[in-house]
Amino acid sequence: MSYLINGHVPVPELQPDIERLRRLVDDLERIRRGDHPGAAQLAEAPILNSWELARRPDLCLTGAVTGHPILQDDKEIHTSALWVISPVLGYARTFSRLYRLGSPYADPSLH
């Protein structure tokens, strides 16, 4: 889910995703410690039959990055999944980090 923010306003619509992410983090922490789901938890979980790995597209940003802690300056990147974007306030929050928004893409064929 991505959220477009148009100013310094509260965003209560984020609450369900915050709660879902907290549950995910709690589960990941338990698994990291070796506390995997037990028989009782699995018995309550839905069953997925005929399953296979698949890919699905997530909304993200692309552009030339500067000041990234891992990537070199001016490298063309695709960000991780976009969660919040506020062009008005000049920022985007992806799954992995906060970005300051510079100038948007200007299609040269339109000039």
Rank of each mutant, 00 (worst) to 15 (best):
A39D: 13
R20A: 13
I5A: 05
D74I: 00
R33V: 02
F95Y: 12
Y91Q: 02
H111S: 14
T79M: 09
R20D: 10
D74E: 03
S80Y: 08
A81E: 12
L48R: 12
P69T: 08
G63E: 13
C60Q: 03
S96H: 03
G7N: 11
L98K: 01
S2I: 00
F95Q: 12
I5Q: 00
G63H: 06
V88R: 02
G90Q: 06
R55Q: 10
C60T: 13
L89W: 02
V11R: 00
P12I: 13
D35H: 14
R23D: 15
A45Q: 14
L48M: 08
E52T: 15
P46K: 04
A54K: 10
A45F: 10
M1H: 10
L48E: 14
Q15R: 12
P12M: 12
D17M: 08
T79K: 00
E19H: 07
V9H: 05
P37R: 00
I31Y: 06
E76G: 04
D107E: 07
P57I: 02
H68K: 01
L28V: 14
N49D: 03
T94E: 09
Q41E: 15
A45E: 14
P108E: 11
H111W: 05
R20P: 01
P12W: 13
G102K: 00
H78V: 07
S96L: 06
L4M: 13
R30L: 08
I5T: 03
D73A: 06
R55D: 07
L42I: 09
S96A: 08
L21W: 08
H111Y: 07
G63F: 10
L71F: 11
G7R: 01
G63M: 09
G63A: 12
D26F: 08
S103P: 07
A40Y: 12
K75V: 12
K75S: 15
I85Q: 00
V11M: 07
S80M: 11
Y3M: 06
L4A: 08
V88I: 04
A106L: 15
L21V: 07
L24F: 06
D27S: 07
